[in-house]
Amino acid sequence: MTQTAQFNEAGAKAERSRFEEYLSLMVGGQTFGIPVLQVQDVLSHQTVAPVPLSPAEVSGSINLRGRIVTVIDMRVVLGLEPFSPDQCPKSVVVEYGDEACSLLVDEVGEVLELNVGECEPNPANLDSKWRELSNGLFRLETELLVVLDISQIVSAPEKTLDA
């Protein structure tokens, strides 16, 4: 969890206050991170009520304790094949503005404490779609973690509709 911190002791000590927690998740073999403060819930498989005519990213709506939450298929957002009905994706419910969205992901990992100062900018050759969604990336010990920009994800379906 704190591998990165050890990785760069000097920086860590100097800027302790800039540590932030991220929830790691896997979509299509890639690890992503969402600031933990924006995560409201992690749910196991849910029955999603489809919404006809909705943009491809939206797989429907769910009833989360009396609140209607739009379900967004992260695979579609990332330009991958959508989840098929027989798969049981996990849901990460994120809060954005006064709305909540449930993001469908392959796996939910753990909460990592990462030093914001070590966040690196997107590589110049990153896929343009991903670049819009990414707020930079962290070098973890074994892999790279792409920090997701929730506002971009939430507005992705709108853009599709407009287009």
Partner: peptide, 11 residues
């Protein structure tokens, strides 16, 4: 409806 669906006129 959520923002993602707001542009669908029939709802």
């Amino acid at each position: 409806v959520s923002r993602a669906l707001r542009n669908i006129p029939i709802y």
